[in-house]
């Protein structure tokens, strides 16, 4: 054994004798990610084809808007809200009918769910993403007329332009109480089952909408609201939605 071996042995013994490891110091900070940092070219080159594809697709023109439509324009119904609710009805009903041989009665969405304006000019896929950036999808719920009446009460109290499709006509009196509520021109029948198209957020009680439960059935169409809008806009040369009489308040 040389002196080297002895030293090595000593070192080993020491390591074994002090096996416990402990934290002696901790340093914590956050680092800004900003344009002072170099860009990794490998990463940039990897992202690039994805970005190009998305931009090309997002900027493809699917319709035209003669005016700018905002959810702030209108009292109890807005052009953009009417456009969305009618689109959900007309795109979802064929899917629902094919599966169930039944028809949707009308659509109810929420005012807060309109996330952006539609600007005057070319309407692109990007416009649809702006209006509906989330993944919410269409749900058709079967509820009794009594619950449809609860929905009317809710709408009268909410005093917001929650989008409804044109099959429903809701009129409030000057005190904002329900004056008349008709579906397909008929008063609501408390004994009848109605099929309401809405989104999964509202079905789950979002915005305090409790009238979808209990229910007589729930049909998940696996159809995203955004895709509804894209499919609907593609069918139209020009979007020409209007504020109309579907949800109004009488002034005297």
């Amino acid at each position: 054994m040389t002196i080297k071996h002895i030293l090595k042995l000593c070192l080993l013994l020491l390591i074994f004798s002090c096996a416990s490891t402990h934290i002696s110091k901790i340093e914590g900070k956050r680092i800004d990610i900003n344009d002072s940092l170099a860009t990794s070219q490998t990463i940039e080159d990897f992202i690039s084809p994805y970005r190009t594809h998305i931009n090309k697709n997002m900027d493809s023109i699917i319709s035209y808007a003669p005016k700018t439509y905002s959810k702030m324009d209108g009292d109890l119904n807005t052009a953009i809200g009417n456009l969305m609710a009618d689109a959900v009805f007309s795109e979802s009903n064929p899917v629902f009918n094919k599966r169930t041989q039944k028809n949707i009665d009308f659509t109810l969405l929420n005012h807060g769910g309109i996330r952006s304006i539609i600007s005057k000019g070319d309407v692109t896929i990007r416009s649809a993403f702006g209006v509906m950036p989330f993944e919410n999808s269409v749900v058709v719920v079967a509820i009794k007329g009594t619950q449809v009446n609860e929905m009317m009460e809710y709408l009268s109290k909410a005093k917001r332009a929650h989008p409804i499709s044109h099959q429903l006509q809701l009129t409030l009196d000057k005190n904002s109480a329900v004056s008349s509520a008709k579906v397909h021109g008929e008063p609501i029948d408390v004994n009848r089952t109605y099929y309401i198209a809405t989104n999964d957020y509202l079905y789950n009680g979002g915005d305090g909408m409790t009238f979808f439960r209990p229910n007589e059935g729930k049909y998940v169409l696996n159809y995203k609201i955004r895709d509804v809008l894209i499919d609907n806009f593609k069918k139209k040369d020009t979007l020409n939605p209007k504020i109309d009489q579907r949800f109004i308040k009488l002034e005297d």
Binding site: T21, K25, E27, G28, R30, I31, D32
Partner: peptide
């Protein structure tokens, strides 16, 4: 941001 926490150990 990126968070960074350094732990120093002594045996």
């Amino acid at each position: 941001y990126l968070g960074k926490v350094d732990f120093y150990f002594e045996s």
